[in-house]
Amino acid sequence: MGTSSVEWTVAGRRLAAAAGTVVGERYDANYDVLHLDPDRPLAVVADGMGDGPGSRAAGRTAVDVFVSRAQFDPGSLRAAVAEVQTAVREAGRPLPGLTGCTLTAFAAGPDGAWLVQLGDSRAYRLRDGLLELLTVDHTVAWLGLLHGWFAAGSAEASVASRRLTRYAGHPDEPEPDLLNVALRSGDALLICTDGVSDQVGYDRLASLLATAAGPAAAVEAILEESLTPGDDNATAIVIRVS
């Protein structure tokens, strides 16, 4: 397990970030794709849908296009996602099966940080001891739980969790959610694929983020925890603000 680390400065705030990924036991390869930019405050993760060539192509295409187009205002972030949608669909035309992936990103500038969300990878924030889920899962399971269609942990919820309502490569080009978040000293942000959120419980995530010596240690601990079930690729990016 290896991690990469960077530091950024945004509006007088120091941001220390680290990222890593593990394959787990379910797949022979890793269909998660991450990017931790060495030069600007930008972090991106994509999770391919399934384990075919379309999954690999979608994740790589989505991250590469988003990184090349993203700037730090909502208009350009939405435009970057629109270009991702087109590029992922084009990449999938010659491939069998579905070509699609999630896309979750952090981009910070003078006016604060933006979270970009498409799919069911997630962004959390640990602030003053409280771990909050900042993003919404774009799945039928999320809708079902909100509207009481079925119970959490039920067989119906498990099946519905695999049905994404928005993703990169979707034929209807759904727009992403954009969330503007202020950066406060002491905050810890976690961006992760569902291989983390499905395999590491809420209390453990909160504890590991709170007690790790730094972002790299937090990433390593979270990914190590994900290997206990080991049922999926798992990717984590941790950003600490000071």
Rank of each mutant, 00 (worst) to 15 (best):
A168V: 08
D28N: 13
V67K: 00
D39T: 02
T21A: 12
R93W: 06
L164W: 09
G230N: 11
E90G: 04
L15P: 04
A160W: 14
S161R: 15
G201C: 07
R93A: 13
L189T: 02
A168I: 04
V196M: 11
A18W: 01
A79L: 06
E7A: 13
R78E: 08
E220R: 06
R122Y: 09
V241W: 12
A152V: 12
A79P: 05
R14I: 00
A210M: 09
A221T: 15
V45S: 00
S197I: 07
A17S: 04
L190H: 07
V33K: 01
L189H: 07
R26D: 07
A236K: 01
R162S: 12
A82S: 09
P110A: 08
P215G: 04
P215I: 01
L209W: 02
E7N: 10
E132A: 15
V196L: 14
N30S: 03
A141V: 05
P41V: 06
L146R: 11
N30T: 09
A113I: 02
D128L: 15
L223D: 12
F106D: 02
R40P: 06
S68W: 04
L133N: 03
S207L: 13
L36F: 06
E90A: 14
E83Q: 12
A105Y: 03
L130A: 15
L131D: 13
T135N: 07
G50E: 10
V45I: 05
G92N: 07
P171N: 03
D37I: 03
A236F: 01
P41H: 02
A210L: 12
D198I: 11
Y202A: 05
V67P: 03
V116R: 07
S207K: 14
V65M: 01
A62M: 11
Q117I: 04
T61V: 00
P176G: 04
L115A: 03
H35D: 07
G24M: 07
L223C: 10
A160I: 09
D232F: 12
S76N: 09
S4I: 10
A80C: 10
Q71E: 15
G112P: 05
A113T: 06
A29N: 11
R26L: 03
